[in-house]
Design a protein around this nucleic acid. Structure first.
Lengths: 354, 354
DNA sequence: TTGAAAGCGGTACCAC
DNA sequence: GTGGTACCGCTTTCAA
């Protein structure tokens, strides 16, 4: 495997000049540069990133922590991150984080703590103070997308607002018995995405005078129902069957915390012979690429764009003079929430007259 | 950031001894080892992988090349790979490969060519001879899952057999007008996954005496119809609408090259008011986690397990003495195809009597 | 069993 | 503008 010394020899210059000519740093005569570049491609020279990292302290590699690969939102974010990093000449090292357990701490205490990643992007994870502290101690910039934890840079939508908006939409249509399919941890982790969306739902129904019902089998009539489930489609389906199974207790509208859950609810409704939106209105969150196909009303966000931005922020934190401590806010719009948009489709409508 | 010299000083030993004590290579007195380990954890020492790579020539990092993150099959494979690598102390560097264009060559000629990855796992990509040659020249073991290209290690199912099996299933049920929704490139790339499945379909229908119809609007009656589309759900939906739109030309069964396509077809059928399996039978491929939810008959494979195995193979190739040239076959079962299984659900049945 | 010293492949500082 | 050289942090002979 050719090293820079070989290139230098072939081009008749010193290693130092070869390095400058190839990396573009420092001044080299145009002619010399061409000779060096020619020599390099001649022998198929490619710089060893490890050697460069060793001396510069920069790896040009970003660690990405994600709880699931196979959920649309996360995949889309990952996609945005990947493209942006690639264009910037950075590598992406992926860590598929187990919810908890020894594997999780190994990721933070070993993999991410090493000098192999310049910065870390964390997607949809509720970070513990210890995890954040460890990264800070190693002076690694951390950019979060969603999730929770006291971190300096976080890109997020207004999840509380999303919960409120979705709920208002249903209320305005005239629904008075509304269920919210919240993500797991909505009550135990109030600061999490699931928790915030649920809070938005609860406050809005409460403000509308709807009582919070103990569970889905509470007697009919107006009220708000809260159910926690995994944010995927199968769990949405199961919860949907449960929720919609008994005609007497059935809500007329469901606000699902994710589009995938909503798809599950829609299929459950179909399975039960309910017609939409006549018998049931459903609204989701995300702007899933299949939402149109399911004719699902949803609150769109742009995960790919969030991924792109997260990289930009991370790179900016890296670019700033080393520390990042006193640097000006690297977040766009002073950390304002990312935009969302209510897209009304055929899955929501006024309830059938009682 | 503490270096090994700091650990050595604190423990009162030389750098060499500290290295041996921490890495486990070479003999160190049990007592010395403890002292070193204590010192290391005392100051929060974590070895720099770059420095180690530089001297050992091993990065403990595997490059993974994937065409989409947001397709269930690929996500599931990625998941299997990730878990296995993590357990082995390896990093995963992800490359989301554009179908073609300059970005694609940059991945192969720059990112993967560097000494940053020990080996490469390529999922569902049709590799060109040039791409393979480049990797071989740099002596990087390559393990493929699906896709095509003349590579030494490839894990794959019997895609031709899958196409034949799915088709036979429909034929045995009595269907005589069958459409195959093939992946893009089925005809132009006969060795690709899409091509092989389509070939299995065509041979089987041909053997059954069904004529190949020019397109889906060919006159009714027995025949085989071949349509190419993207392997995702939206494309499946669109193709489904097209294919099933005209009652006179409608096939009674559809074999979709992927479960996601099949889901799309199912929704298209529902949208058109067709009832399944009365008016239409649908079979897919993959064993998607939502297949049960759609009551979809499918030919299951195990992407996660394939990912796990790919890592095992790659690590074995790495473990073998350097070259890999004359090493014994690192593939399990001498490269026999990975298992698949027909799972019959409610989406396939005998056709309604004509 | 342990230590001294030579690199791995680059970069960057310093002279020239 | 270019070359010499120290050094990034670690592993690994080779001697002791």
């Amino acid at each position: 495997m050719p090293a820079i010394g070989d290139v230098a020899r072939l081009a008749g210059v010193s290693k130092a000049t070869a390095s400058r000519a190839l990396s573009g740093r420092g001044h080299v005569a145009a002619d010399t540069r061409r000779r060096v570049q020619l020599a390099a491609s001649e022998i198929g020279y490619i710089a060893s990133p490890d050697a460069a990292s060793l001396v510069t302290g920069r790896t040009k590699n970003i660690g990405v922590v994600i709880p699931f690969v196979n959920r649309w939102f996360f995949g889309a974010v990952l996609d945005g991150i990947e493209r942006t990093l690639l264009a910037a000449g950075y590598d992406l090292t992926l860590y598929n984080l187990p919810v908890s357990g020894p594997e999780r701490s190994r990721v933070f205490e070993f993999f991410l703590a090493r000098k192999r990643v310049d910065a870390v992007i964390v997607i949809g994870v509720d970070l513990t103070p210890g995890e954040i502290g460890g990264l800070e101690r190693r002076e690694k910039p951390v950019v979060c997308i969603g999730g929770s934890g006291e971190v300096t840079a976080r890109l997020t939508i207004d999840d509380h607002g999303v919960g409120a908006l979705a709920t208002s939409h249903l209320l305005h249509l005239g629904h008075t018995r509304i269920a919210h399919l919240a993500g797991v941890g909505a009550t135990s982790q109030p600061a999490s995405v699931a928790g915030l969306r649920a809070a938005g739902f609860l406050e809005t129904t409460d403000a509308a005078g709807l009582p919070l019902l103990a569970d889905e089998s509470s007697a009919g009539g107006p009220g708000a129902i809260l159910v926690e489930a995994d944010m995927g489609m199968p769990a949405g389906f199961a919860a949907g069957l449960q929720l919609l199974g008994h005609p007497a207790h059935r809500p007329t509208a469901v606000f699902a915390a994710s589009d995938e859950m909503a798809f599950g609810v829609i299929r459950a409704a179909e399975r039960l012979g309910l017609s939409m939106p006549r018998d049931l209105s459903v609204i989701g969150v995300d702007g899933h690429e299949h939402a149109e196909l399911f004719d699902l009303t949803t609150i769109e966000q742009s995960p790919t764009e969030q991924g792109r931005l997260a990289v930009e922020v991370a790179l900016r934190m890296l670019g700033g003079e080393g520390g990042g401590g006193g640097a000006p806010d690297p977040l766009p719009d002073s950390g304002a929430p990312m935009p969302t948009r209510l897209v009304v489709r055929g899955s929501t409508a006024r309830p059938a007259v009682a």
